[in-house]
Design a protein around this nucleic acid. Sequence first.
DNA 1: GCCGTTTTCGGCCCGACTGTTTTCAGTCG
Length: 574
Amino acid sequence: MKNREIAEIFETIADLLEIKGETIYRVVAYRRAGEVLRSLGRDVNNVWEEGSLESIPGVGKAIAAKIDELLRTDHLEFYEKLTAEVPPGLADVLKVGGVGPKTAARFWRELGITAIDELEQAAKKGKLRQLSGIGERSEARILENIIALKRQHTGRVLLGEAWTTAQELLSRLREIEGVQRAEAAGSLRRMRETVGDLDLLVGAEDIPLVIQAFIAFPEVDRVLGQGGTKASVELIDGFRVQLWAHQPERFGSALQYATGSQGHNVRLREAAQKAGLSLSEHGYQDQEGGKIFCPDEEEVYTVLGLPWIPPTLREDRGEIKAAKEGELPQLVELEDLKGELHTHSVWSDGKSSIVEMAEAAIELGMEYLVISDHSRSLGIAGGLSIEDLRAQRAEIKRVQKKIGKNLTLIQGSEVEILANGELDYPDEILQELDIVIASLHTSLRQPREQVTERLLRSIKNPHVDIIAHLTGRLIGKRDPADLDIEAILRAAAKHDVVLEINSNPERLDLKDTHARQALESGCRLAINTDAHHPDHLAFRRFGVGTAQRAWAEAPSIVNTWPLERLQAWLKSRV
DNA sequence: GCCGTTTTCGGCCCGACTGTTTTCAGTCG
């Protein structure tokens, strides 16, 4: 059983217990255990084999025993008993907007509803409004939300897509009269790989004016809710946006609040409580009712004696403790990147010439650029034959002459790891390349041992410098290969092979938790864009965000190194 | 059910909005 499957069971348990009316803290414990497993990074099977399940935060005796039972027997007696008592379809009913555990329990007990379809039928027949406390409007809203739930595409949107939408909305919000500041908050600001809805924050004197202007934006399809300080809307494309407007003097506390994560905020408020303060989006309040406003976010943290914690760390993964102890990482920043180690040109499936890619890199202030087109077997992507490779080498030299010393071009290749585990060029050809990037594109669905072995073999090849997009996943479209990540990280650390964080928003591979695990295993990373067009070089910001979420510092990222150091490292290898 | 240099028992974040009520519970983030 995989982390995700166990997490789903625990999350369903939480939902069902809540409907049953269990104490909320027990419910929260299961929910938290689910979340932790989902984002653990490590395979829970390995933790289990080590016998250290209880070292996982949020996992105590009771939940550890349940994980153990699941991994041993594939069953959980507690879960089976619970679902016999509370129909599991009610967990889906909770997904309907406006229906929480109390309401779901009443639908079940008073109307016999056990699944979404039954709820829809009951709503259509006007049965819901027969319950006390539920009127026609609630019934209509529930029906509307069921329909919205059914046509929902994937639920979450890719980070890159959400980023673009957010930038457009923010620039228009900033044009509204009296708006002093406008920023994206929420999971977008934390750079999560997908974003559920956009949280935008505005600092302005005239708040009603901002709210009115916002809901009148042409791309707003319907207003889901609206009050004195916030508005929630659905855009024409189905994406949901929340706008929070606050007085400028409260902007910092509001931004902190809206950025989350929820877990981080809970921890921070606990810390505030211990200091005799109460923290909300409006700032701090002491026991006598004295207020402390925070116009800037830094102040939210300094009041508690903490340094500002970067949003990418705010996931309740130990960042508050680290901040207290003065042990926050010096996170890698976009400006630290000196070059790019993985790009394509028209020589394979890129859309631009080597000159165009080089000029774009110069524009971004890079010191070096690796052109790494696909290897020969990847026919669909115009992979280069050995002759092509040599011709390209001459072309790169020619371009280098033309562009001068502003940028150093390096010839690499993204070499296919074939289905049988061999690399796509013989060793003597790999040796001629300045840098060799190995990656999987085919036969990703091989059994775990087989696909893992392909990677291990590539890592052990002395010519291979970087493994690109390790798992081959496409977020929401293609599952990652089934890999023994820990074995691969150990091998990469041992052979000094760099693992790529692929910055393309569809990939973000390594993902944050794997990247953190890689760093803890002693691996070095590269933040690459895999650009097929000059515009794609801008993906770097997402790769940097992912690296930050992994607590990465610049020295661990090889393309923060100056050219000389990079070349020395490459030279030290074969 | 978890967790601990204020606790191994007794705590466990905070406010806005909605709908249906006449003062509040439920939901959501």
